[in-house]
């Protein structure tokens, strides 16, 4: 639909265009501002910046607390992603291949940890860990962070894998069986290659989600400090502000790189991000209503 062929009156078109531009500016100006602040040579936060400098990148690099928090975040992200990859693809296979009672409920349960208010999910996990502490000596640790993150990361992998499975023809699997391959061979040589990039994309997005999470993490981490938690604890301290600015910018860029890579891997355009991203929240429910023909 070209600008000339749209059926809206000219005035409406121009008005909408203007408003869209304003909304985009509203969305992106804050992101640019915070990245600029990372290069602020001064300790004070006042605008305009007196110049640009890399000096705080150096102090950030040498900051032991930041390093520890960074490593914790990486570990939590890797742990949560591993579990999410396993559970998410298993769930996708079952929903894609089988018809069973409660099939529609699967994606609903998977989306729930992201759709419910974060405080509810956080508080629920917190009471469980507390009771677990009384009963079986469970304590807040990296593991409880990983368990919490994995719970809401599963849906991201699930959505990616099931979207790919639905686009992959089942005749390939049938052909493999017909040619004498057993189930494991078929999985290894036919199914896995066809979903490999979907798994990688799902894994990257799950990692991004975990790396950045704070609302639930605060309730499941105890004294473990992740990178977002470090920012949250330090951003009020005037002395730490320059380092916080740098860490914030790194976090921002780090959260966008996986999205870019995932986008490339799934080879979808914007439409793909709608179903793979945190837009997963938007599409999982769609899966619950859309029932493809089962073989």
């Amino acid at each position: 639909m070209s600008l000339d062929r749209a059926i809206e009156p000219r005035g409406v078109q121009i008005g909408m265009r203007l408003l869209s531009g304003l909304v985009l500016a509203f969305l992106y100006i804050p992101l640019f501002v915070i990245v600029l602040y990372a290069f602020n040579p001064a300790r004070s936060q006042s605008w305009p910046l007196p110049g640009l400098s890399l000096r705080w990148f150096v102090s950030t690099w040498n900051n032991q607390e930041v390093r520890t928090a960074f490593v914790t975040s990486i570990k939590a992200g890797l742990g949560a992603t591993t579990i999410a990859l396993l559970l998410g693809s298993l769930a996708a296979f079952s929903v894609h291949r089988f018809k069973f009672f409660g099939r529609e409920a699967v994606s609903f349960i998977l989306i729930l940890p992201l759709a419910l208010p974060g405080i509810v999910t956080g508080m629920a996990l917190n009471s469980t860990i507390n009771l677990g502490g009384q009963l079986i000596g469970l304590s807040f640790s990296l593991w409880t962070i990983i368990i919490g993150h994995a719970t809401f990361c599963v849906v991201v992998v699930y959505n990616n894998v099931i979207a790919r499975l639905r686009r992959t023809s089942t005749s390939l699997v049938e052909a493999s069986y017909d040619l004498g391959a057993d189930g494991i061979q078929t999985f290894r040589y036919v199914v896995l290659p066809s979903i490999r990039t979907a798994l990688m994309a799902g894994g990257l997005l799950a990692f991004a989600l975990s790396f950045d999470e704070i609302i639930v993490t605060n309730f499941t981490s105890g004294s473990e400090i992740t990178l977002p938690k470090w920012i949250f604890n330090n951003l009020r301290l005037p002395n730490q502000r320059p380092v916080v600015n740098v860490v914030a910018s790194i976090l921002l860029v780090a959260s966008l790189v996986p999205v870019y890579l995932a986008q490339r891997l799934t080879q979808d355009r914007a439409g793909g991000l709608l179903t793979t991203g945190r837009g997963a929240m938007l599409s999982a429910t769609e899966d619950a209503f859309e029932r493809p023909a089962t073989p």
Binding site: I214, L251, G277
Partner: peptide, 11 residues
Amino acid sequence: VLPLWSSYLVR
């Protein structure tokens, strides 16, 4: 879509 994925806390 992109801002959905940029760090919440940083925003």
